[in-house]
């Protein structure tokens, strides 16, 4: 689960002396929203985002004929270094996806430059890359059925579930264990690679598990 495996390695970069128009064109052409700014040795010295560009060259100024000319000239003189975020937060290749997820949540950034031991840029990891990894982890690209099981928060519960599923000759796509509103309870969500859930549901109930009504499923109990 290292970011090196999930990041985009073919990075488009820009020099800090380039114009904003060049930056905008690069983003548009490559369908990206974060452009790392590097020095002569490929070390990140800044990052410029589509949002930085939008605030630097707001559309409305072009609509006013009295100021359009002056504004255009002003913007034409601006360089990437004038609007970029300098000294961006970078993350090393050895960070995990979990590290990146927590950092994105904490810093509220959409992407991070990834650097090697010498601090040179080797990739970008974005929310989009992490989503792709998360879709893969959840297994939702594969055909299967999700069931929700309420369990006591104590050792050995998952084993009982796995035993029943295995005895029914069903493979797992993924298993999520989530906090549950009720104290001392956990919600377990096995994603089963089968169409055939009648018997496995029955057997889980027979050994005392409660199935959670699908409309009451939730996995998001974090503070926003």
């Amino acid at each position: 689960m290292l970011v090196g495996k999930s990041m985009t390695s073919k990075v488009i970069t820009i020099d800090k002396n380039e114009s904003l128009f060049t930056a905008r064109e690069l983003m548009r052409k490559n369908n990206i929203r974060h452009l790392p700014v590097v020095d002569g040795e490929n070390r990140p010295v800044g990052i410029v985002t589509d949002r930085d560009l939008r605030s630097a060259m707001p559309y409305r100024i072009y609509r006013n004929p009295d100021t359009a000319q002056a504004e255009s000239e002003r913007i034409a003189k601006l360089k990437v270094s004038d609007i970029m975020t300098a000294d961006p937060v970078t993350i090393p290749l050895t960070y995990t996806i979990q590290d990146a997820l927590l950092l994105i949540q904490e810093k509220r950034f959409g992407a991070f430059p990834v650097v090697d031991d010498e601090g040179k840029l080797v990739g970008m990891i974005s929310v989009r890359d992490l989503l792709r990894a998360f879709i893969n982890v959840l297994g939702i690209g594969e055909p299967g059925s999700l069931i929700g099981i309420l369990v006591e928060e104590k050792v050995g519960q998952l084993k009982r579930i796995v035993d029943v599923v295995t005895e029914e000759n069903i493979s797992f796509g993924s298993v999520l264990v989530a906090r549950y509103g009720e104290k001392g309870k956990r919600a377990v969500f096995p994603y089963l690679l089968t169409n055939n859930v009648i018997r496995v549901k029955k057997r889980l109930q027979e050994i005392g598990f409660k199935l959670i009504d699908p409309m009451d499923w939730y996995i998001d109990q974090l503070n926003r």
Binding site: I140, G141, E142, P143, G144, S145, L146, T194, N195, V197
Partner: peptide, 8 residues
């Protein structure tokens, strides 16, 4: 499909 087979 978030609840039932086949997920599409």
């Amino acid at each position: 499909p978030s609840f039932a087979f086949p997920g599409t």
